[in-house]
Structures are given as structure tokens and as C-alpha cells.
Amino acid sequence: MTLVLRADSIGKAFAGRSVLTAATLRAHAGEISFLVGRNGCGKSTLLNIATGALQADHGTVTFQGRAYLRPTWPALARQGLYYLPDRELLSPDRTVRQHLAAVTRQFGVGDSEAAARVCDVVKFLDRRCGDLSAGERRRVEVATAIAREPGCLLADEPLRHIDPHDRMLIAKAFQHMSSRGCAVVVTGHDVEDLFDLAGSVVWCTDGTTYELGTPAAAAANWRFAGTYLGAARAARLVDDLGTLTAAT
């Protein structure tokens, strides 16, 4: 699999408190990676650094084969990176159609109507984003990502505060992007949903990251299970994932 994004040996401290010491994030074309860890472990910091929204104290970011010591979000965006931060992305004054059209016109790629259909936002294309619910806004944000046709999508807690129906739509949208060769990295605590979605799991803890492999391998990892999942949940996940694997 082609490595699209690599954030290597990343370190970051805030006001003397070290959050990341030697964290690594890799995103492969056509794969969905799940970056998981406890609150405050540095998942969002790592994503922000990989995007260029935040500067690391040390480490490098390589995107599409080019290494950056101090990447910036707009520079990486021009090269094909799209970032869905855990805060609002859309302007409340603009309509859904205006956002989608801005993306397709900016880069001369993508089909805004098709992107709207994938995320089921066609029925409110002409509504202002400020008038939409949190779940609808999140679907529109994902639709803008699809319209961009990026080489890599980083999504910080995309399923937080989202109802099951919208979760399913967003998960399908990520699978749609991944099937078209996009490298997708998602974070969050919605372990059941994201384990079903992801091809690999990266655990962020103690300032560093561990590549745990497939979701089934992650659920069976005793240290991850003991520290993050909890024994009962890990056992349930191993059962669920085993059943899923057998069924497919």
C-alpha cells in the first residue's frame, strides 16, 4: 500500500507539559486507520501537527513523498490533504451548495452533486449551514471532503455527538473515499463503530503511538485491552469481530 502521509517522531509540549514525545502517524492509500487513545493523550495534537495546523517541537511530516519540517495546513491542502477538525469547519452564513461549489471550483475536481448524494445532504443544499443540526453539519463537512477528492483525509472525532443514522452515513462516506484510494485517518472513542470501519488501529498513549494492526488484533492486545478498552469490552469486541470475519 502506498504511504501517503507520515508524521515521524513527533514531539510537542504545552506550557512545559509534554503531550507527545515520539509519536508516529502513517496513512496508507485506500486504508482507514483508527487513531485511538484516552482523553488528553495527544490524538488531536498529533492530527493538528500532521495537518500543519500546529507546529511540532520536533519531528517531520512527509506528505505525497515530500518532507516538511514546518508544514502549513494550506500548503498541504493544496497538495491534496483535507482536514475535518473537531471544531466547526463550515461558515454558518453560507449555504451547503456554496460550500460544495467553492471546493469543486477551487481545485477543478470533484462532483458536488455526487458528494451531496453520498452524504444524503441533497435535500438541504440551499439551506444555510447555521440552520442545520450538528449531525447534518457533520454530513455536509464530509460531503465537502468527498467533493475535494483528497489524497488523504484526517478526521478528528467525526462521530462525536452524532446519532446512529448519521454515523452510518458518515461511515459509508469514509468507506466510499477509501475505496477510491484516499488514505483516511479517524479518531474518536466510538470504538464499536470505528473498529467495524477501520483496517488498522493506532494506539496513542504515554506520548507515543503503537501500531496494533487490525481491529481484531487490537482487541486481543492485552495491554490495550487493559488500559483503554477494559477486559469485558475487549472480550465482546473479539467475539464481534470474530463473528464478522467468519461471516465475510
Binding site: A53, T72, W73, P74, A75, A77, R78, Y82, Y83, P85, R87, E88, L89, L90, S91, P92, D93, H99, A102, V103, Q106, F107, T144, R148
Partner: peptide, 14 residues
């Protein structure tokens, strides 16, 4: 204030 800077960053606008 209009929350446009993040969307513009995704468009490659600094």
C-alpha cells in the same frame, strides 16, 4: 468570526 478560516485553509488559502 464567520468561521471561514478553517474552510479556507482546506482550500489552500493561508
Amino acid at each position: 468570526r464567520r468561521n471561514e478560516h478553517r474552510f479556507l485553509a482546506n482550500l489552500g488559502v493561508s
